[in-house]
């Protein structure tokens, strides 16, 4: 017969394990941030991570943004035409892209690319003793591997989202002017007149937060991976899944801060 106490113990054990993980992750993030303020700094590692995130993620983010803008324009038109509000399409597109879809979709794309790549690279370094080797070579692995990536992720994501915002709006403009009968000038005038600084700024703040979370989860998953190839594979999955969930959860938090 199942002992009800053992069931409670199971739940309690899981809760304690979750608390331990959150605590360890918080300490990991705090240590990494402290290394950003203390020399030595590794500008080469920062530049490498920045190029990896900002430049090599550009195609996937750009394509996602353009098609999202195009779909948004089409969907808005088909919905808004039911009550004669077609003229609001440019406004809906720019608002949705800058506030929400630009940062969130760029974040999810970068989580898939960069979160996985960082977890795999650092995880492989962990299981092949390269992280221990760094320590024996008088180099702090947190300072060398984690801190530059966190800084690069936090700074690169807003730049990617600026590009995503512009291309998303242009995707809507393309559909609006070629299929929905808007004039180019009126579409762009509507867009520019409607969008406010806060719309773009809130999206960029989200981008910075998402960039930090993606790189943090990638580095954390890789750094704590164990057990050879299987461990690295699990770390990669963990990095993508956890950063994707955190992006959606933090999206709500930042939105509530700005517009709640």
């Amino acid at each position: 017969m199942l002992n009800p106490l053992s069931f409670l113990a199971l739940i309690g054990g899981a809760a304690l394990a979750a608390c331990r993980q959150v605590g360890a992750l918080t300490l990991f993030a705090a240590e990494a941030l402290s290394h950003l303020l203390r020399p030595p700094f590794y500008p080469r590692m920062f530049a490498r991570a920045f190029v990896e995130i900002a430049y090599f993620s550009l195609p996937v983010v750009a394509l996602t943004a353009v098609f999202t803008g195009m779909v948004l324009a089409l969907q808005s038109y088909s919905g808004f035409s039911r009550f004669g509000a077609e003229s609001a399409i440019a406004n809906v597109v720019v608002l949705s892209i800058t506030r929400e879809l630009g940062p969130v979709l760029a974040g999810l794309m970068v989580a898939g690319r960069i979160g996985a790549a960082f977890a795999a690279e650092i995880g492989t370094m962990r299981v092949t003793d390269q992280i221990d080797a760094l320590t024996t070579l008088s180099t702090n692995p947190m300072k060398y591997l984690v801190a530059p990536r966190l800084a690069a992720g936090t700074l690169a994501m807003p730049l990617l989202v600026v590009v995503a915002d512009i291309l998303g709006v242009m995707g809507g403009w393309l559909i609006g002017t070629t299929q929905l009968g808007f004039s180019s000038a009126s579409y762009l005038t509507n867009t520019i007149n409607f969008v406010q600084f806060e719309d773009v700024f809130s999206g960029l703040v989200k981008a910075a937060v998402f960039g930090f979370v993606i790189t943090l989860m990638g580095c954390w998953s890789g750094y704590t991976s164990r057990g050879g190839a299987q461990g690295v594979g699990a770390a990669t999955t963990m990095a993508v899944v956890s950063s994707s969930i955190l992006i959606l959860a933090l999206d709500y938090v930042v939105t509530a801060m700005f517009f709640g």
Binding site: D129, Q130, D132, T139
Partner: peptide, 25 residues
Amino acid sequence: GMLFQNAALFDSLPVWENVCFKLLA
């Protein structure tokens, strides 16, 4: 100095940078 069992060379760096890693750091 430490020689690891599997050498633990940094595969993102060329050999010369591996060899002089500590001196460069």
